[in-house]
Computed example of a mutant assay.
Amino acid sequence: MTGGLVSPWILGTFLPSSSEFSTSSPSPANSVCRSHFRAPKDLKFVLHEALDFAGFNTTYAREARKGFCLQIQKLSGIERETSIIINRGVDLGKTALYIAAEDDSLISHSSVPLPVDAFIDRLDDLSMDYCSRYSSSFRSSPDIFLECLERYMYVDKGFRRSNSRNQLEQRAVYLHSVLTHRVGSICMLSLIYSEILKMLRMWGLVNFDVEISSPNDSYGSPRGYLKQRSTESDHQHIMTTESLLLKVASVFFVEIFTCRFIY
C-alpha cells in the first residue's frame, strides 16, 4: 500500500485553521505545525477505517485514540497557549502515552496494547523517588531545590537529551520509550520535568512558581528557574501545551506518510 492515506492527526483531531495557511498549497509538514487542537465531533477516523478494510486489526489503535480525544476535549483555548508546567485541564503525560500507544499498535502490530497506566505509574514514581532522596530540599531555598531536581533527573536517573540529528527519532519522542531508555527529545524531557514539579506542587511541597526553559539549541537540557525572575526574552523558550503535543503528534504523521506501518 502506498501513500494514499491521510493522517488522522489532521482529519478529525487536528483541524487546520484556513486563516493560518498561505495562499500557496501547504506541505504536509506545515499542515501539522500550523494545526490547532480541537475535539472531533465523532470518532470515525480515516486511517483506522482504511486499515480495517485492508485487513488490519485497529482495535487497540482506536482505544488509544479515544483516550487521546477524551484528554484534549478538556483543553481550552487559553490552556493551549500556556506553559506545560501550569496546565491543569489535561493530563499531558497520559495524552502523550495515548499517542505512543496508537503508533505502537499500528506500526508494530502488537498483539497487546501499550500499558498506558503502567507508564503513568512509572512517571509518578519519579516524584515519589525524588521525595525520598531529596526531602531536605523542600526546606532549602528555591535555587537549591532546582539544583537538586536537576541533579536527580540528569545525574541520579540519567536522563539525557538525544544527540540524534533526526529530531523525529521515534524512541526520543515517545514518552514510554524515554521513561525506559532515559534518552529523549527536548519536548519529552521538558514534559517529565514539568510532571515531577506538578506532582510536588500538588502535594504542597513546592510553594513558589517555577518555569522551565527549553533551549532551542541542539545540546541543552530543560532547566527550571524562578518565574519571578523571568524576562521577556525567556518567553521564547517556554514550551506550551499545544507546541508539545504537536511535536509528538508530528512523528505519527511522518510514520503514516512514509507508510512504515505497512510491511
Rank of each mutant, 00 (worst) to 15 (best):
E63R: 15
F53I: 09
A29Y: 11
R38P: 02
Y225P: 00
G12T: 05
P222S: 12
T13N: 11
E242F: 00
A249E: 08
S213R: 15
E81D: 14
Y98E: 15
S17W: 04
L245Y: 02
S194G: 04
D143C: 03
S132I: 01
S31T: 05
S110G: 07
F68T: 05
R165F: 13
F253E: 03
R201V: 12
D121L: 12
F21I: 09
A39F: 05
R38Q: 13
L191T: 02
K157Y: 03
T2V: 08
Q73N: 08
P40M: 07
S135P: 00
S162V: 07
K94P: 13
T95P: 09
Y60P: 02
V46F: 07
E169R: 11
T241M: 07
I144N: 10
D209K: 13
A249H: 01
L47T: 03
G77S: 13
E150R: 05
T23H: 07
L197P: 00
D121G: 06
A96P: 08
Y174H: 15
T13A: 10
R139A: 10
N87W: 00
A101I: 09
S17A: 13
P142Y: 00
G77F: 07
F138V: 02
D129T: 04
T59H: 09
L205N: 00
F145Q: 01
R161N: 06
R80H: 11
Y130I: 02
